[in-house]
């Protein structure tokens, strides 16, 4: 049982949907980013997605790309991102941390070395955008062997023929990408998402969380209502971009979490 499994078991007991928040580690600088991350559990965040900055985030829109650039310009490194997880673990041993990003910084570190360091830092799962099932031997299998969840993205283009391959080596939860497109783009539509989530759930017992294109408390409620939870990233990151203070961002996060938690 990872913290992710424990969290979903708790939510199930409480009859609640999950709220997952994404922030880019080190955006706009290490200290304020850490302050925000520490404020997320109290704001109702069930799972933290910690963005690993990368120069070339091909699946992300400009909001996340610029966040990564700010973080890198602020001196964020893989070591500092791991350190942030360690710092959070000093005060919070329950909230799962999922590291989300692209493969090259991990490959550059060396997969085995990275996995040992991530495990040690209290990371629970990985979402690596550019590692489809065809490349499972790279990181997915080693990560599962190291006791980390490897969470897969499923998309509107993942048809029934492909789903079993996607589900085969995945664990923790399934992240359903609500649109064909990049983060922070079009709005997710609950009416479109519902049947897709049901299609995935007919093939797996894992929780299905939906992300991309969710920007408001109402949208979080609507999407969480047709799935096991909702993820918000770009809408939170854009407040960081605007230079809002941490308490104000945390208040917005709380409104999103409340939305997801209102869903039945």
């Amino acid at each position: 049982m990872t913290r992710i499994d424990t969290t979903f078991a708790r939510l199930k007991r409480e009859g609640k949907k999950a709220f997952v928040a994404y922030v880019m580690a080190g955006d706009p600088d290490y200290d304020s980013s850490l302050e925000l991350i520490k404020a997320l559990p109290a704001a109702g965040v069930d799972i933290i997605e910690l963005g690993l900055p990368f120069t070339d985030p091909m699946a992300d829109g400009s909001t996340i790309q610029l966040a990564g650039q700010r973080a890198l310009e602020g001196g964020q490194t893989l070591d500092k991102t791991l350190q942030m997880a360690r710092e959070l673990r000093k005060t919070d041993n329950d909230t799962p941390i999922v590291m989300m990003g692209y493969y090259n910084p991990i490959y550059s570190r060396g997969v085995d070395r990275f996995l040992a360091q991530a495990k040690d830092a209290g990371i629970d799962g990985l979402i690596i955008v550019d590692l489809p099932p065809e490349e499972d031997s790279e990181l997915c299998i080693p990560a599962q062997n190291a006791g980390l969840n490897f969470i897969r993205l499923a998309t509107p283009t993942s048809d029934d023929k492909r789903l079993p391959k996607l589900l085969e080596n995945t664990s923790g939860f399934i992240y359903y990408v609500s649109i064909t497109g990049i983060t922070g783009a079009a709005n997710a539509q609950a009416a479109d998402v519902g049947p897709e989530v049901a299609r995935i759930k007919s093939q797996t017992d894992l929780p299905v969380i939906v992300g991309f294109g969710i920007k408001t408390s109402e949208a979080a409620e609507a999407i969480a209502g047709v799935a096991d939870g909702a993820v918000v990233g770009s809408a939170i990151v854009s407040l960081i971009e605007q230079g809002k203070p941490v308490p104000e961002i945390a208040a917005f996060v709380k409104s999103l979490a409340d939305g997801a938690h209102r869903a039945k």
Partner: peptide, 9 residues
Amino acid sequence: RFVSETLMP
């Protein structure tokens, strides 16, 4: 084939 799932099919 290091691409996002959307592009894989």
